[in-house]
């Protein structure tokens, strides 16, 4: 009973929030609706017993990705009139995209109903949800034994992507002076200040 109520609650909020992402006029509102959608999707994950995935969804997407989204979108200076002016021009492209997406959806569902495709990896087992074995142990046991090669490859690809992003965007700026922390820490009062007992009416040599 309570599972059913929660499922329909989470599911309807996910769909409504996803719709609001598109319909909201203010992009900041869109990002916030997206966060609501992520959060309720995590609720759905909890309902099917995948609590580890649910927590990862919240930590990674809500806690990190969406914060950066919000960070960027908040700083944009958006002219709403200009946004609406471009609408007519982009309608054909939008319709084309929608048609392609619907076609893919229909194809995907059709293919799924025709039977699952055997991919390259042999069918060695799946992580089963059970109350006795925690999610993390089930996933970890599979990830670090059967799929360890694929897992580490994925890690390497991410590392290369990270290094690549830094190499592409990092420019050594000339003419700016950075902070030298150790020299700041080592500086003592006697290096920078001196006490003088100056006679009245005379200037001071700096």
């Amino acid at each position: 009973m309570i599972q059913l109520i929660s499922f329909y609650l989470f599911a309807s909020i996910v769909i409504a929030a996803a719709a609001m992402v598109i319909f909201a006029r203010n992009p900041v509102h869109s990002v916030l609706w997206l966060i609501v959608a992520f959060f309720n999707a995590a609720g759905l994950m909890v309902l099917i017993g995948a609590e580890f995935i649910a927590m990862l969804l919240v930590i990674v997407y809500v806690g990190a990705v969406a914060v950066l989204f919000l960070f960027v979108v908040m700083m944009l200076d958006i002219d709403f009139a200009e946004l609406r002016a471009g609408f007519v021009k982009n309608v054909p492209l939008g319709i084309l995209l929608a048609v392609v997406l619907v076609a893919e959806l229909v194809l995907g569902i059709g293919a799924y109903q025709a039977g699952a495709v055997k991919l390259g990896t042999p069918d060695v087992g799946v992580a089963t949800a059970s109350a006795a074995v925690p999610n993390i142990e089930a996933i970890g046991g599979l990830l670090y034994s059967k799929y360890v090669f694929l897992f580490e490859t994925a890690g390497l690809i991410l590392l290369v992507a990270m290094v690549g992003a830094i190499v592409l965007t990092h420019r050594r700026s000339h003419g700016t002076r950075g902070q030298n922390i150790s020299s700041q820490v080592q500086r003592r009062p006697e290096d920078a200040t001196r006490n003088v007992n100056q006679p009245i009416g005379q200037g001071i040599e700096l």
Binding site: I35, E51, M55, V62, G63, A64, V67, L70, P134
Partner: peptide, 17 residues
């Protein structure tokens, strides 16, 4: 819950909003 520590990490990451 089994993922208590992850739950705390997830919730505290919401605090910034």
């Amino acid at each position: 819950i089994n993922v208590g520590l992850l739950y705390i990490l997830a919730i505290s990451s919401l605090g910034v909003y």
